[in-house]
């Protein structure tokens, strides 16, 4: 018992070590939130362009560029992308690491969101497009008022899953010396040489965040599903 108390004291209290976890948690949430935002915006744009090309054959060049983007991002590990952006793209500038992390994870997430949303758009039956057109809506209006709201609802579970994956993936941000949650735990581990408490504590914090996100999404899904009852 005394041992456990000592370890607890050593891990969290000495030198205010718990602050590494709270700062880390803050940074992890910050990175996740903004890269998710960026990923969603980017993903929707890419998905719309790709779906437009699939359906109408327009936007050929843009579609081609986005296809390269998807291939590169989905074909390489996120850690490598992170390091490339930090050490190569922003090689000779002193740039905020959090910004680099948001950019890297946002670009990465955008590619996955794009394919999720595209599959959502393609899953909406042709009749919905035709109904929109036959009322005099342009392609863009049909997309915005009729297709995207339905597609979004259909892919919400997949998007939520992507958000959860993203949250966990940000744990590699430590590679560019970002003090995220994982790094906070690593730091404590490197000064106390105790693996158990910092690691378990970090794991539990991630788990709680994921559970909160899952709960929020279930609530949102239920609200959206109201339309389908009958």
């Amino acid at each position: 018992m005394q041992d456990l108390l000592d370890t607890l004291y050593n891990t969290f209290i000495v030198d205010d070590r718990w602050k590494f976890l709270t700062t880390g948690l803050g940074n992890t949430l910050l990175i996740t939130f903004f890269s998710l935002l960026m990923g969603m915006v980017l993903g929707f744009i890419v998905a719309i362009v790709r779906a437009t090309y699939d359906k109408t054959g327009k936007l050929k060049i843009l579609n081609f560029l986005f296809k390269i983007y998807l291939t590169v991002i989905r074909g390489t590990p996120v850690v490598v992308q992170l390091l490339i952006i930090y050490f190569v793209v922003f090689g000779s500038v002193n740039i905020d690491k959090l910004f680099v992390a948001v950019l890297a994870f946002g670009l990465n997430s955008g590619a996955y969101v794009a394919e999720i949303v595209r599959s959502g758009i393609m899953s909406i039956e042709k009749g919905q497009f035709e109904a929109g057109s036959s009322l005099g809506f342009s392609y863009a209006q049909t997309m915005i008022y009729i297709i995207l709201p339905q597609a979004f609802k259909n892919v919400l579970p997949a998007l939520a899953n992507e958000a959860i994956v993203l949250l966990k993936e940000t744990s590699v941000a430590g590679y560019i010396a970002v003090n995220d949650l994982t790094k906070g735990g690593d730091y404590i581990r490197s000064v106390t040489y105790q693996a158990f408490l910092p690691l378990i504590c970090v794991a539990i914090i991630y788990l709680i965040m994921v559970m909160i996100m899952t709960w929020l999404v279930t609530k949102l899904e239920r609200r959206l599903a109201k339309n389908d009852k009958g």
């Binding site: 009749g127 036959s134 809506f137 339905q150």
Partner: peptide, 29 residues
């Protein structure tokens, strides 16, 4: 699009917008 506004169409499979209420289906366009 101007032509289509004046030329209504009714489909075999209705193609109502499932995410909108009946009223919204009618008033959207």
């Amino acid at each position: 699009n101007k032509v289509r506004q004046k030329m209504g169409m009714v489909f075999q499979h209705f193609n109502l917008f499932p995410h909108l209420t009946i009223r919204q289906n009618i008033t959207l366009a």
